[in-house]
Design a protein around this nucleic acid. Structure first.
Length: 560
RNA sequence: GCGCCCAUAGCUCAACUGGAAAGAGCGUUGGACUACGAAUCCAAAGGCUGCAGGUUCGAAUCCUGCUGGGCGUACCA
């Protein structure tokens, strides 16, 4: 895109200066191109002169002058300015912008995406909540971040697989079974005491009732009964989780079961390897992983002295399994309370002889739920939590998804339920959707007036004549085109930084430019030629808005 | 005690990863519908970026030390 072309222009200027003997230094330089906040500072800007100054032992101002001298002939730019103590600011020619618009109009938005990934494979694992209870609002945040990040990475040319890891083999599942067992007894009129660490939510009662409704029988021994109930309960809960995610617009390519790792021998094999390499050894009857050899962290238990394996052991096996599937990058999305887990997992990857940088962990900070001005505590076991489903039912899928993406993931999020419900009309998501609906409305009116543009309506190009985009000259129109072009940079930036929230801010800004324009300029005006050019502008704009909302998993209704 | 994260306008959050004069929305105040949808627009007020040092051309961003909040620190999951 244009940013890249500016970068090339600068590189060429540097090389020319080198050839002429003005500059002399070793190696290539990748100039950083920014989009300045202030429009006075141009459309693109570089701080290159500051970077080169110590290398060349020249003042930034002097260096900037040399570069500008070489670059100023380019037909890309209207003018190049040196500002401040050495910033170089580029002002793009309107024609170049209009050409870019035309290009997207003709080839479509999908041809206008960065190919950052070049087909490299990424596995993104998220949610992965244990099937012991319904998803709560915190899981929802992780679900959206993972889902949208996957979409963004796909747009940026990566091959992405979304995976849910089901912990179906551990202590928690057994506790779930025991909880159901007690509820069953209760339903039969027995008086029961619930230990503190049991699951007490009402959903356990529902599972127990369902067990009876389905006419299932319990095995004779308590042990077998609990085993059966564990399986029954967790599969019921898992079904519910999948349904909740579906209604939230989140789908997975793959569900991976922890129990598979045991069945396939992956856990044993992995522990064997660690032992062989000398990174795991026995002490006090337990098997320990020597985390301390790799990270500033303590050694951790893999097999307890009672013979049970820890989750850590199966997690190592799981990550080894993921890497064995040939992914170039593994992204894990975790709740921030698991942050202490990162060093040991990275250490284990290193111990297995892999590059630990292949694992990127994104931490999702807590969501504080506020109702009636008070915060609501969340604990699955105490059965006191607001489920994702409740929130989605109340504020809607679109608003809920967008809300979760309004903050970067490592910051706390305050979710005020009352506010989200009460002011849902003022939610930014409507601001964006409204822009789309407004554009659509313009198209409907245009059609009534018999105006058809390629892609708008169904009649093909109007009068077979070329539409003159040169008629787009207003500042507002140029601002919209620039906004459209920034879509490319936004996707690229979000993908590089793994920060999906950038897209929401981009869309709000983009759509703001449109709303301003709309209030100032009548698109369907007296002069047909202007109308046509403006319709093309809005057509491309709408494609970008729709694409952006599609990535966010938010709907784009034609009417609201 | 040790470790990780956070602290920015009255509130909720941004700031393109070290750039120029820190930006939006909500809220407040004042304007704009006999023109394509007012779920919109235009304008104003609002800041010593928690505090104190340091690094350099340049710091909300990096380093050190405080203050206040969250989380972790298990042969838990």
């Amino acid at each position: 895109m244009i940013r890249k072309r500016i970068q090339e222009l600068i590189k060429e200027a540097i090389n020319n200066c080198k050839k002429k003997g003005i500059f002399s230094f070793e190696g290539e330089i990748d100039p950083i191109i920014e989009i300045p906040r202030e429009e006075d500072f141009g459309d693109y800007s570089t701080n290159l002169a500051f970077i080169l100054a110590p290398k060349l032992k020249k003042s930034p101002l002097k260096i900037a002058e040399f570069i500008v001298e070489e670059a100023k002939g380019s037909d890309l730019v209207e003018k190049i300015e040196i500002a401040g103590k050495g910033f170089i600011n580029f002002f793009i020619k309107d024609d170049v912008l209009r050409d870019a618009l035309k290009n997207i109009f003709q080839k479509g938005v999908d041809a206008f995406l960065p190919d950052l990934g070049m087909g490299r494979k990424i596995l993104i694992e998220f949610v992965s909540a244990n099937p012991t209870g319904p998803l709560h609002i915190g899981h929802g945040r992780g679900a959206v971040v993972g889902d949208v990040l996957a979409n963004i990475l796909k747009c940026a040319g990566f091959n992405v697989v979304k995976e849910y890891y089901i912990n179906d083999a551990g202590r928690q599942i057994a506790t779930l079974g025991e909880s159901t067992y007690l509820r069953l007894k209760e339903l039969r009129g027995e008086k029961v005491e619930f230990p503190d660490n049991f699951y007490k939510g009402d959903y356990i009662k529902d599972i127990a009732s369902k067990f009876i409704e389905q006419g299932k029988n319990l095995p004779e021994t308590k042990e077998d009964a609990i085993k059966k109930l564990s399986e029954f309960s967790s599969s019921i809960v898992m079904e519910g989780i999948i349904k909740d995610l579906q209604d939230f617009g989140v789908y997975f390519d793959n569900y991976f079961r922890e129990s598979e790792l045991y069945k396939s021998g992956m856990v044993d094999k992995t522990l064997e390897i660690l032992k062989e390499k000398g990174f795991a050894s026995e002490k006090d009857g337990a098997l320990w992983f020597k985390t301390s050899l790799f990270e500033k962290d303590e050694d951790r238990v893999l097999i307890k002295s009672n013979g049970e394996t820890t989750y850590f052991a199966s997690d190592i096996a799981y990550h080894r399994e993921k890497l064995s599937r040939g992914f170039d990058l593994l992204i894990d999305i975790w709740g921030s309370d698991h942050h202490g887990y990162i060093p040991r997992l990275k250490a284990s990857i290193e111990a297995l002889g892999e590059d630990k940088e292949k694992l990127k962990v994104i931490l999702i900070q807590f969501v504080t739920l506020i109702k009636d001005g008070k915060t609501i505590g969340m604990s699955t076991r105490a059965g006191q939590f607001t489920t994702l489903r409740e929130v989605v039912d109340e504020v809607g899928k679109d608003a809920a998804r967008f809300f979760f993406l309004m903050r970067k993931s490592d910051a706390h999020l305050e979710f005020d339920l009352d506010l989200a419900k009460k002011t849902s009309n003022e939610n930014p998501v409507y601001y964006i959707q409204y822009a789309n609906a407004r554009i659509e409305s313009i198209f409907r009116n245009a059609k009534e007036q018999g105006i058809f543009i390629k892609g708008i309506g169904d009649e093909g190009v109007t009068h077979g004549k070329e539409i003159n985009l040169g008629l787009l000259t207003l500042k507002e129109e140029m601002d919209i085109i620039k906004g459209i072009i920034h879509f490319y940079d936004t996707i690229e930036g979000s993908a590089k930084s793994l920060e999906p929230h950038r897209l929401t801010f981009y869309l709000i800004n983009l759509v703001g430019r449109f709303h301003s324009y709309y209030n100032k300029v009548k698109v369907l005006g007296e002069d047909r030629r202007f109308t046509e050019a403006r319709l093309v502008l809005l057509f491309v704009l709408q494609q970008i808005i729709k694409k952006g909302l599609d990535i966010l998993g938010v709907s784009a209704p034609d009417k609201m």
